[in-house]
Amino acid sequence: MKPETTHSLHQSLHQSLQPVGYRIIVVSLGGILLVAAVVKGIDLQQFALQIRQYGILPDNAGLIHGVAWFMVVVEAVIGAALLVNWRPKLMLAAFVALMLLFIVALVWAIVQGGVADCGCFGPAAQRSPLEALVEDAVLLLIAVAAWRLRPEGIYFRKPLKTWAVAAVCVLAMSLPLTVGKGLSDPPSAALEEGRNGSGMVLESLSGEQIDLTTGTFLLALMSTDCAHCRESVPLLNEIVAEVDDAISICGITASEQAEVDRFIEDNFAFYPVLNIDAQRFTSLMSDAPLPQFLLIRDGQILSRWQGEVPQLRALMEVAAKAQGA
């Protein structure tokens, strides 16, 4: 076979496989975005709380709920458009812009610390900002590859495609109000469950329990990959040594058990650290980054400190005041 013929066959094969590779990539990217949008839309309240923990937006519940809703719609529309190949050039550019936005937010979260869950898939999957950053960087590279593989042919704008994308847009807008948790409840409403003692028995994923309805506890809400959380360990160790049995100190996290064991070993924590269900963990948090510290007496949340470990004197004063009342 002549070299010219071989080259021609290779070129023909490349041209025939290029559209197939492009479609596989964009369908995969579109499916990922669509699934993420549905999961977030079903529990918009949880997604809003995850956005709030980044500390980028003003501390306004209405604004953050609106941004959460808007992001659900944007992801659903881009995902559906990529699936049906509607305005592919524009939608690929939108996907790249979305990934860049996510990457900037994740870098901010890593630098600032205190974000336990990236929020990429709402409450369905928990990943640290660093893990999500790697994943989004890979998706960005794949989207760039799809742009290079994109055939230069004419794309027919069939009305059916437009109607399909429009239908997904309407469904995404109505999702939080129909099958999901609506916007009427503020993100921190779940905290009220524990103020009267109900739901205040914490159980780790390994089955260990802490009954917060009896006694005085200082809960350190933390993430194992949070720099500020690691810095709080020596101060909490000092409190453990000072209070003896008057106040029980316990770290609470939603990280995996292997990460918890590594955290205790690397930071020499003298107090137990329990990993609990991510949704239960979030319900204990307020609308602020980690670490957070809750002083609880007989099931009542007496006080909360954010960012810094409370002084021992402040702890004892709050506990004594509650006992006198």
Rank of each mutant, 00 (worst) to 15 (best):
L44R: 01
T5N: 10
T214S: 08
C169P: 11
T282I: 05
V26C: 04
A48G: 12
G182S: 11
V84G: 02
S286M: 06
C226L: 04
Y22W: 15
P88W: 01
D117K: 00
A314W: 10
E203D: 11
G180L: 05
P151Y: 10
L160E: 11
I103W: 08
I56Q: 03
E4V: 15
I24M: 12
G79M: 01
P3D: 02
Y271A: 07
I64L: 06
G41I: 06
I154C: 04
H7L: 14
G182H: 08
I110K: 07
L133T: 06
E208Q: 12
T213V: 06
E152K: 13
M285L: 13
L175R: 00
L98D: 02
F268H: 14
I78N: 00
D261E: 12
V111G: 04
S255M: 02
V20M: 14
L83F: 02
L221W: 00
A146Q: 00
V165H: 03
L312V: 11
L235V: 10
G66A: 06
S8T: 08
I110T: 06
V111Y: 13
Q292M: 07
I142F: 08
A76F: 10
S16T: 08
P88A: 09
K89S: 09
S16F: 02
L219C: 07
E256F: 12
Y271V: 09
C169M: 15
G251D: 05
D117A: 04
L202Y: 01
E242C: 13
C120E: 03
S188R: 06
S198V: 04
V144Y: 14
A164D: 10
S8P: 01
E256Y: 14
L139H: 09
V96A: 13
A76H: 06
R148K: 15
M173N: 07
M285C: 15
K158M: 13
E256V: 12
M1T: 07
H14L: 14
G307Y: 00
M222Y: 00
S8M: 10
L98A: 10
E131T: 09
N275M: 09
D287G: 05
Q126H: 12
A288F: 05
A81R: 00
A48W: 01
V73H: 07
R87D: 04
G55A: 11
R150H: 10
L177R: 07
V27F: 08
V38Y: 00
D43C: 10
L90M: 15
L106G: 06
G66F: 01
Q300F: 11
G113Y: 03
G197R: 10
E203M: 13
S184K: 15
L141R: 12
P234V: 02
G21P: 02
T213I: 04
G324E: 14
G21T: 08
G199A: 13
S188E: 15
V233Q: 03
P3L: 07
P19D: 08
V201K: 01
W86Q: 03
P176G: 11
A76K: 05
Q209T: 11
E135S: 15
F281I: 01
M1Q: 04
V201C: 02
T178C: 06
I103P: 00
V260S: 02
V243E: 10
P186A: 14
F70P: 03
M91S: 15
S16L: 08
V170G: 08
L139Y: 12
I56M: 09
E308T: 12
E256W: 11
P123A: 14
A97W: 12
Q11L: 09
I247C: 04
Q292I: 05
K158D: 13
A288W: 05
L9G: 05
G30V: 03
A97Y: 13
N85C: 14
T178A: 10
A143P: 05
